[in-house]
Simulated assay, not measured.
Amino acid sequence: MSFDNAYEALTEDNDARWAFGTGFADPLAGLDTTVPSGLDAAELARSCLWLGDDALIMSHRLQEWVAAAPELEDEVALANIGLDLLGQARLLLARAAKADPSIVPSVAQSDEDALAFFRDAADFHNVRLVELEGGDFAVSMARLLVFSTWRLALLQRLVDSPDQVLAAIAAKGIKELTYHRDYAARWVVRLGDGTELSHERMQAGIDAVWPYVDELFDDDASLREEFDAVIAQVMTAGTLKQPPVRPAAQTRYLEPLLAEMQSVARAHPDATW
């Protein structure tokens, strides 16, 4: 369908959705969302919810670079990476809600919107890595490299999930995350093997995110070997050093992040695009 202007596309229907640019009201429309026999529905919902939370919060952090990236090309790239993750979040949160409707807050919104905008910080289950403030560009590239390398390895295993919906989400996400990882790796190498100043800042970025790496493997240590091999290759090319292991501090970033992200939806819960 063609439109005379962009606003007609946004207002084609009276769909109460908050995720701009997704183009569909129900991300799982037409799919059989019955939980396969032998799978625990609550456990499936938990896995999808946690994966969705990681993608949602990371997406928000990446969108903070819009109008702030060093080059227009990178602003567009980071916005698109953020939208990829937002799409993953929608699919995963919707799958979680279909598997276990009891997790959805009782508000007049679609399932994924209710989970994204009407849960408090204590009800989110994302890894702490995605909560961190972006800092400078080097910190954000270090985090994106770590996050996308870990998540890509994770989704590569989930394509064999007995839940066909989760398997399909993972297969789609693999293609996206391969680009995310490669984009971040190119920047880490470019900055690490650049000038003395860029090297110092890139090493500082790695140092800043490294305390949050171990948490990524709490549920599946089998991913660590693959992750370490990729990171070691990138660090070697960028003349960077892997920091020593040190404990990660609790962050105080999630509550203010959610206050910003959820503000419009909570102030106008009955609004429509």
Rank of each mutant, 00 (worst) to 15 (best):
S59K: 05
W187S: 04
A185S: 08
A69F: 03
F147H: 13
D32H: 06
V165Y: 07
D193P: 00
Y7Q: 09
F117I: 10
Y212Q: 13
D228G: 13
D207V: 02
R90Q: 09
I103V: 15
D182F: 08
A9K: 11
D4V: 06
W150M: 02
A185N: 03
T22E: 13
G134N: 15
A184W: 01
L257A: 11
F124W: 13
L91V: 00
R181F: 02
A121F: 07
D32I: 04
N80V: 09
T22G: 06
E226Y: 03
L51P: 00
G135H: 07
M58E: 10
H180C: 08
A16S: 13
D74A: 14
P256M: 07
E215H: 03
T236Y: 06
R61Q: 12
V107Q: 09
A9I: 02
Q233M: 13
R151H: 09
G21M: 09
A69R: 01
Q242S: 09
S102F: 15
Q63A: 10
V127Y: 07
S263D: 13
R266D: 13
R246I: 08
I206Y: 00
R119Q: 12
F124K: 00
A267S: 14
D4G: 13
A42N: 04
S37T: 12
M141V: 02
A29L: 15
A168T: 06
A29C: 06
E43A: 15
P269W: 08
L144G: 03
L155Y: 14
D100R: 05
I57F: 02
D182R: 15
A221E: 15
T251N: 08
R95K: 14
R246P: 02
M58C: 05
S102H: 07
D136A: 06
F3L: 10
R95T: 13
A6L: 11
L91T: 01
E131K: 02
N14P: 00
L85T: 01
M261Q: 14
L28H: 03
D4N: 10
Q164V: 07
V230E: 15
L78C: 07
V146R: 03
A171T: 08
D182H: 15
S140M: 12
S148E: 06
A121Q: 12
A67K: 05
P70R: 05
V104M: 09
P256F: 11
A9D: 10
D74I: 13
C48G: 00
L86W: 01
T22K: 09
A248M: 06
P243A: 09
E225H: 14
V107E: 07
A271K: 11
A249T: 08
A9T: 03
L86R: 05
L91K: 04
A153F: 06
L86M: 15
A142M: 04
E64S: 03
A208P: 02
A69Q: 06
D160E: 15
L145R: 09
P211A: 12
F227K: 04
Y253I: 00
T11L: 11
